[in-house]
Structures are given as C-alpha cells and as structure tokens.
Nucleic acid binder design. Sequence first.
DNA 1: GCCGTTTTCGGCCCGACTGTTTTCAGTCG
Length: 577
Amino acid sequence: MNSELARAFENIADLLQITGADTFRVNSYRRVSRTIRDLADDVRTLHEAGVLQEVKGIGKGTAGKIEEFLETGRIALLDELSKEVPAGLPRLLEIPGLGPKTIALIHSALKVSSISDLKQAIASGSLAELPGLGAQSVKKIADGIAFLEASKGRTPRGIAWAVAENYLTQLRSLPDVERVEIAGSLRRGLETIGDVDLLCISDAGAEVVRRFTTHPGVKRVLAAGPTKGSIVVDLEGGAELQVDLRVVPAASFGATWQYFTGSKEHNVRLRERAGQRGWKLNEWGLHDGDEMLAGATEEEIYARLDLPCMPPEVREDREEFAAGAAFDDLVSAADIRGDLHTHTTASDGKNSIEEMAAAARALGYKYLAITDHSRSSTIANGLSLERMREHIAAIRAANARLKGFTLLVGCECDILPNGDLDYPDELLAECDWVVASIHAAMGKGGRGKLSPTERTLKAIANRYVCVIGHPTGRLINRREAMELDMPRIVAAAHDTGTALEVNASWQRLDLKDLHVRQAIQAGVRLCIDTDAHRTTQLAAITHGVATARRGWARRGDVLNTLPLKDLKAWVARKRRG
DNA sequence: GCCGTTTTCGGCCCGACTGTTTTCAGTCG
C-alpha cells in the first residue's frame, strides 16, 4: 500500500512539474512520496489511528488525498492531471539535461509526447529551431537520451565502487594531488548509484582534470574545466556510468565534501539550520557575512551547527536532525570479528576450507562459519546427509590445525516450500551455527503451499536456526523481493531470539537499510555476512556494514561483533529457548 | 502543499554551469 501511494504522489509531482506548477508545491508532493516510502508502518494503520498529519511533511491536503486513495483507490487530482498530460511525457524528465520547462515547450510547440517523438524532432532539425534551443542544447539532449538508454537505470554499488577505486588509484598517483575522496551516494552507502562523485585537493586543477579525462577507460568527455571534469565509462553489458571529478582548495575541502556527499534533502535541512542562525552554508564553507566559520573539515561544520558529526550513511533527512540523535557507536567494519555465512568447494564455493580460513584471518577476523548448502539445493551442489557428516568432520579437523582462530561448523539450510528445514534437527544440533534461507519456490504460495512469510516464520520457530539468510531474496536490478510481512517476521525474530541477516553481497544487500531500521527498533539482532563463494568476496563485508549503518545499526545490534565466547553463549541461549 | 520560539501569511537552500542570451533562464547536484 505504501509503495503504491508513494508512486501515485511521485506521479502527481512529475505531472505538476510539467504543467508548470509552483516548484514548492511540486517538492511537497515529492517529499510526501519519499516520506510514505520510508514509513515503517502501513499508511492505513496511521490513518485509522488518526495520526497521519502528525507525520512531518504530511499536511491537510495530502492527508485528504491519502484518505481518498484508501477509500476509493484513486486520487482525483492524479486522474485529472493524467488526462491533461500525455502518458509518455513524464518519462522525458529522466533524460539528463532536459527539464520541465523545455519539456513543456517541446510538447506545446512540436506535439512531442514520447522519447521516440523527441528523437524524430531531433532528426528533423525542428527541435533546434525552437526559441532558446540551439545546436549545443540539441546535442546535449541527444546525448542524454543515449545515456538513458544505455545506463538501464542505476548501477549496483559493487560495480560503481570498482570504477571509483580505479580512478582513485589513478588520481592519487598524480603529482600535485594532495588528497582524493569518494563523495555522493556511493559514500552514503546506497545500494545503487546514479553517478560516481570524486573530490580532490590540488593546486593544479586543470592538469588533474586533463589527466582524468584522457584516462584510457574514458568513453566520452562531458565537461573538462579548471575545477571540474565529467566523463562516461563503459560497463559490462553495454551499460554506461558517469564519473565526476571536482578539484577544490584545502580550506574548503570539508564543506565541498559535505556538499557533494548529500543527500540533497539532508543538505537543505543543514542550510536551513545555518540560515536560522543568520549564517550561510554553501560548498565553500559556513559563513557569517564575510567571515568563514568553518570549511576545512566536515566535523567543524556540524559542530558549529550544534550537531553530532553525522556519518555519511545517515544523511538522508530521515530523523538524523532529531534532538538526541547520536551516531558514535554505529557499527563499523573494524568491529566485525568474523563472517558467519560462507561457502567452500564442498558445495558451490571456489575455495577450500583452509583457503577461506586463511583469507578470513588476513582480514583480522577471529572466527569464520563455514555454511555450505543443504541437500535440496541441488543446483548449488548441496550436501546430502552423508556428505554433510563428512564435511563436519573436515571442518573440525581443519579447525584443530589452527591456532588463535576458530572455524565454526555451519550450514545454510534450505527452508523448503512447506516451511520444513532441509536437514533434520539431529544434524542441525551437530552444527555450531545454522543459517536458514529460502532459495526456491519464492512465489506467493497458495494452493496448499505456504507463503514466504509463513515459511520464514516456521524456520524462525526452530531453536537450531540462528539467523535467516538474505530474508527477502531480492537480487538488485534482477529479481524482486519476496512479498513478506516484515512486521510479523521482525516480531517473531524478536520473540524467539533469532537473528536476521544483512547479506553484504552487493547483488543482494538483504535486509536493506529500511528493514534494518525496522528490525533494530524491534530489538532484533543482526548478522552482517558476505555469503562469500570465494576468498576475495570476504572483503565485500564493507557493503553490508554500509547498509547496516544506513539503518542506524549500532555495534551492539550486530552479533558478529561479539567475541567468540559471547557468540557461543548467545547460540546456547537460543537453543535452550 | 507545508509550516510556525519572527506562527495562519509569506516564506520555502544555494551556487555553478551552460547555452542562449545582450541580462538571463533552465538544469543540476
């Protein structure tokens, strides 16, 4: 219900924008849309409790429209706007470089109402003849269409991260470059990225930008000036990704880093706060008239505004400005003492038990759970009862050869379509650690089959199950999450003391940030695990940590920050029930 | 459309860049 309503308000905002409505009114609808999407509770619940208008950003007008939607399934304003504006027009807003004013112009002057119409108008030359548009603008729009069609939406963070690291390394090797950092949504830990933002301190801006834009991997150069360079690179599968570089003086680095890290909504709040004190905040610093109050570091900017220094992952204008919000003990990668979901060659992994253990040790871990697939995951070479018993012995033997590091015997046990676990309790009892996951039959259930929610609840009720692996089953940009009743699952996890996983694989990031927040607010423990199928994937823990931090997870919320002794005590308590 | 320790009207974040202009509008982050 929430996401449906959020989409409706987003549509209203798009349509209003094209019809030339007041920007502030448009922004109100966008804000309401985002607020509803982020809501932990169902809007219907809030409506029935009569507290809808207590939510910040929802006023009399939008509350009325929510009510209208709940009662009739429609919103009259949206219906009217949809009649007025051709269906293909809002899609044009997605074209970079093309905004509402130009869209309104080309629609009224040329009857353009879709991307294909627009392409024709470009080809025929009629677009270039419109007032205010010239050859350059038309080229920019044509490039924007090409980019939109190639980029296929947002880039998963794992892919964007690799691109960013490549350019970081290149830039850091240049002379006259003092510092280079990642900004933007990548720094904030988002699961998908629009473009990569890089920031550097240097006195030789033009030369740095020249080296950046002439790097062998560059496909197109969008801009190249003394302080800014912008390029497009190719990704696998024909997709493209934009990378922006900005060069700034050291005195402004903190302000610019803060500014280009965003989010936009967070920055708006921050500048409002500066304004309330009679100051001005921009990308160059925090100013009182001509006097610069802060700018070299982010810490001093937040401090001058009487705020805790906010970790990038919480800068979303959710509740981080609320009084008393503190972020000192958010979980960090350095807190993680072991990985509790990994695979070996015994099932579908690429490395041996010993190799995985060595790689985990190299990361500074104290323990590692080997959790290969259970018998029903035939496609993943799941282990039969007999093979699992041999595997248990092999893990124990490997562990006996290790000093100062512990291998835990585990399994990733399938949750079957009827909600039963794939191994009998006697075998689960022989394991130190049990991950239970759904891998097949992820549809709705029905015809006597259990729903994913009911299957998960049944698994949670088993005392040997320590954690539910990748609970929603989504694959970013490839497979939708299962339809789960998350409040029920979170409540059951809390009641039974079962943990929920934050799967750190960048294809999954499951639980996602908002679910993390729901879970920890209910007092549920998390495990941040990589689900590594090879040694190199263990390092991806950072993506899971970022996701957990976006959900405001503290060190104490995450089981695998515990020393081994405490972790084992936790398992023992869970088994006693 | 939302909001209020300048509170029911009149604000609502800010600057850079670009391309088309001859003083500025549109777009972006």
